[in-house]
């Protein structure tokens, strides 16, 4: 019973965080400076998720050539830049990662 309450509480909190601004911003107009800042939310948040995965694969900074995730990520970034295609980026990035892992081990 307590477990159900805990989980339903987690659900209500998560939903409220996602919902409140979608409902309120109908009546409240955001200041122009805040609206401009929102253009940077995807780039900033996604970069903040990606950088540690590439640079700290085991929790500590690893800039060596033995860091397969960093090298595969750099190759994938070049693929993304040239192709602008997410599927190519994933496919080639994973193949490079597997090859490097096989070669390094």
């Amino acid at each position: 019973m307590n477990l159900w309450i805990a989980i339903i509480g987690m659900g209500i909190i998560t939903y409220a965080i996602r919902l409140v601004l979608l409902l309120l911003l109908e009546r409240v107009q955001l200041p122009a400076v805040v609206q401009r800042s929102l253009a940077y939310v995807p780039t900033a948040v996604l970069s903040a998720i990606v950088f540690p995965i590439l640079l700290q694969p085991n929790g500590t900074l690893d800039l060596s050539l033995g860091n397969a995730r960093l090298l595969a990520g750099l190759v994938a970034a070049v693929v993304a830049w040239r192709s602008k295609n997410v599927l190519w980026t994933i496919g080639i990035g994973m193949i490079v990662l597997w090859l490097l892992q096989a070669w390094l081990s």
């Binding site: 995807p42 996604l46 990520g73």
Partner: peptide, 14 residues
């Protein structure tokens, strides 16, 4: 690792 690659694919062109 596919998560990181997906995000890379999304942000790099911007």
């Amino acid at each position: 690792f596919t998560l990181a690659l997906t995000f890379l694919g999304l942000i790099t062109p911007s």
